[in-house]
Design a protein around this nucleic acid. Sequence first.
DNA 1: CCGCATCCAAAACGATACTG
DNA 2: CAGTATCGTTTTGGATGCGG
Lengths: 109, 109
Amino acid sequence: MIRSVLERVGDKWSVAVVCQLGESTYRFNELRRLVSPITQRMLSATLRGLERDGLVSRTVHPTSPPRVDYALTGRGRSLLVVLRDLAGWAEAHAEEIGSSRAEFDQREA
Amino acid sequence: MIRSVLERVGDKWSVAVVCQLGESTYRFNELRRLVSPITQRMLSATLRGLERDGLVSRTVHPTSPPRVDYALTGRGRSLLVVLRDLAGWAEAHAEEIGSSRAEFDQREA
DNA sequence: CCGCATCCAAAACGATACTG
DNA sequence: CAGTATCGTTTTGGATGCGG
């Protein structure tokens, strides 16, 4: 069960989308541009998954042309907090991890 | 760059192995049993990835039969802290996410 | 503008067999 | 015991075209 929750969190696009929606609410094609280079298909699938887990809300405005807004729910915002810690860790250690990788690859070449 | 670090974190087996190594140091087949049902192939690949990033150390004892111990490095332990927060969030929200999923799946059936 | 359906290539994964 | 190699299967992801 917990593993199935972590699988969603572990999805690279889900993380990117949640972080982006932390900034503001967006429309479909706005998101598409912002979390580029995500494809339409993946964005669509990602949003449906996040909506299913109650992390993102989807609001359809019955106008013409149609307009759909996506936003973080309360639960989504609580995840965002944890995610930012993780992103912080990644950023803080990115450089030294890069060195480790280079060194490691060197040794076996 | 940061994304490439998050990809490792996002890997379900890497997370499981790091959490397990948080308990103690282990040998290959001990790990295999503990983070089951991981396959030999996946454990091997996961450990190499973690070692490459300097998160796990690999110590070979030249005995017969051979013995190899895996342990978290300091960097690995710093990741463990963040990972535990994440796991805590997942655990805390697992139930309500389960409900959301069931409800969502209901609506479209 | 939003987003689903189809087709196709590429990569991940599991099972099994084999080596030092 | 601790892995590597190979094979076949399943999953994933991108490109494209169509419909509300």
